[in-house]
């Protein structure tokens, strides 16, 4: 009888709602998410104060160098990293590859990055992210792209930047573009907003919501080319909610120290004295690449 009455009183839970998915992104705000390729790097990142790690087989700089088709990481690698740390673990899938996403969801990864850093799997479609309980983050170069991804169910947005270059100019370009386009919405009348929604290929309600909020309706991080504490603080001062650092940490000469420095610079992004202190004597940053010399721009992947 006891068990029967207990059963009656069980409180129900609703899993995978958009509030819960976007909520995790909200809890990551003001933090740094770091690319790692093994358990040892994941532990260094966690110790430095990363709020999450991105489990990868190769960092973007190596993907760029080695070429070939870049795919989702080996599940064994992802599991190894999930076991090593208590912070949330993210992993990447190819654009449009919903089965890779199903696999990562089955592994219980905490966040999926549908990423242009990997080779796209679908020439027209991104993943329908509403079908998943696990939240997604997607890259953008402009407002239209960000809103299309949100309309597909993304719970978090990041700038695309130009991954694996250690060159921040593209991330700055994308963040400024989003900011300018949101500012432009504010001057539009309802006819013009309708036209914009058509141009962006999203419902007008989403454009109106963005206009009302004066920012993207989900958390927006910086990514792609961030290599120094000052780069990270620059993106924060431009209005980003947090920062992804990919190759910038484990391609530098002192990863643990640089990781810690970038975390501190993001937590105190308006305090130049802190940024000066943590920038001191970090050793060599990753060498980096001039954008005009690139054979392929990863940011052009995605539709």
């Amino acid at each position: 009888m006891v068990s029967k009455s207990r059963k009656k009183n069980i409180q129900r839970r609703i899993k995978g709602s958009f509030r819960v998915k976007a909520g995790l992104a909200q809890m990551l705000k003001g933090g740094v998410i770091m690319d790692v390729v093994n358990a040892e790097q994941a532990k260094i990142a966690e110790k430095a104060g990363a709020v999450s790690v991105m489990a990868l087989e190769r960092v973007p700089a190596d993907i760029r160098k080695e070429g070939g088709v870049a795919r989702m990481a080996d599940p064994k690698k992802v599991k190894e990293i999930m076991k090593a740390v208590s912070i949330p673990v993210m992993a990447k899938v190819r654009i449009g590859h919903f089965v890779e996403a199903q696999v990562l969801e089955a592994l219980k990864v905490d966040f999926i990055d549908e990423s242009e850093v990997l080779t796209p799997a679908d020439p027209k479609h991104h993943i329908n992210k509403w079908e998943f309980k696990v939240p997604f983050v997607c890259g953008c170069t402009c407002l239209g792209e960000a809103l299309r991804r949100i309309n597909e169910g993304a719970a978090m947005i990041r700038t695309k930047g130009e991954a694996g270059t250690g060159n921040v100019i593209e991330a700055v370009r994308h963040m400024r573009m989003v900011n300018e386009e949101i500012a432009a919405l504010k001057k539009m009348n309802s006819m013009q907003l309708k036209k914009k929604a058509k141009e962006y290929r999203v419902p007008v309600a989403l454009v109106k919501e963005t206009r009302k909020l004066g920012r993207l309706p989900v958390v927006n991080f910086a990514a792609g080319g961030i290599a120094t504490p000052a780069d990270a603080a620059l993106m924060m001062q431009l209005g980003c909610d947090g920062v992804f650092v990919g190759s910038g940490i484990f391609k530098s000469s002192n990863p643990a120290k640089r990781a810690r420095a970038i975390v501190e610079a993001v937590a105190h992004f308006r305090d130049a004295k802190v940024i000066a202190r943590v920038s001191e004597n970090l050793g060599e940053a990753m060498k980096g690449k001039e954008i005009s010399e690139l054979k392929e721009k990863l940011q052009e992947r995605g539709w």
């Binding site: 899993k15 819960v20 966040f111």
Partner: peptide
């Protein structure tokens, strides 16, 4: 409760306040 896929919303009964929407994330 487990990893993010186990995060959930649930109705809670708070003493003196009544029903409150609980959002549980990791």
């Amino acid at each position: 409760y487990g990893r993010q896929v186990e995060s959930f919303e649930a109705k809670l009964k708070v003493s003196k306040l009544g029903w409150f929407p609980g959002v549980f994330i990791r």
